[in-house]
């Protein structure tokens, strides 16, 4: 039987026991608009509103803000090893979002990756089906620095002509994986990149061209 009695309900009427967002309604809305904006304009960046409480490491404040904005008990979440090994991180996510935490990446609605350089292949996550491509995993890479790594060229929906995008750290052959991910459109994962205070995204619809070094 399903019950959510033990989950704090942040519906704007009840006061959460411990504040996630200072203003649960409007901060979540602002974060969502930032995420929506970057998903609709791949390669662009937006500022996130942070939680009032500093999340336990290795969960970054930006990752926590995204989690509070999008996760709840309807969204199974997969964590990479460093996050999974932290009881404090799991407790934080369970308390603030109520999301079930699972170990099978293929069943996850969201995946949180704190160590992108050693992340599992994108193909290990749920790719959605031809009939329900929306059921794929959204993968969130945290601890990103924008504009320092080798740039790639983006084209497709949301991009006027082309755009340049650079982020890191990423695993080896990451961009080849992203290219393959786009080739199986409409199936495929969507990527969110969380920096220190900013967020960027690459939906599966974006075509990537690797820039020769």
């Amino acid at each position: 039987m399903e019950t959510t009695v033990s989950t704090p309900v942040q519906n704007g009427r009840s006061t959460p026991l411990s504040a996630g967002f200072l203003d649960p309604v409007h901060d979540a809305q602002a974060c969502f608009r930032a995420i929506m904006s970057v998903m609709a304009r791949p390669g662009t960046r937006q500022k996130l509103v942070m939680c009032s409480e500093v999340p336990p490491e290795p969960l970054t404040p930006a990752a926590a803000a995204i989690a509070l904005t999008l996760f709840d008990y309807d969204t199974p979440v997969w964590l990479d090893r460093p996050l999974m090994q932290s009881e404090a991180v799991k407790a934080f996510l369970r308390f603030h979002t109520g999301a079930p935490i699972l170990s099978e990446p293929v069943e996850a609605a969201f995946a949180l990756v704190s160590e992108p350089q050693s992340m599992i292949p994108l193909a290990s996550f749920n790719q959605g089906s031809a009939e329900y491509p929306d059921q794929s995993t959204t993968v969130i890479l945290t601890g990103q620095t924008f504009g320092k790594a080798q740039a790639v060229t983006l084209a497709g929906p949301g991009i006027k002509d082309t755009a340049s995008f650079s982020t890191g750290p990423t695993p080896p052959v990451f961009w080849d994986q992203v290219v393959s991910n786009n080739r199986q459109f409409p199936r495929g994962v969507d990527l969110i990149f969380a920096g220190t205070a900013e967020v960027a995204a690459l939906p599966r619809s974006t075509r990537i061209t690797l820039t020769e070094a």
Binding site: V9, Q10, N11, G12, R13, P24, V25, H26, A28, Q29, F32, I35, M36, M39, A40, T69, L70, F71, D72, D74, T75, A109, Y132, P133, D134, T138, P157, G158, F185, P186, D190, P203, R204, S205
Partner: peptide, 29 residues
Amino acid sequence: NFAYLDEQTKRMIRRAILKGIAIPGYQVP
């Protein structure tokens, strides 16, 4: 709540909107 819907419902709709943006023209249930 602000704009009538409860936060849980808004989150569910927001997730659907993100999927819709990622798959242009596909109808997300």
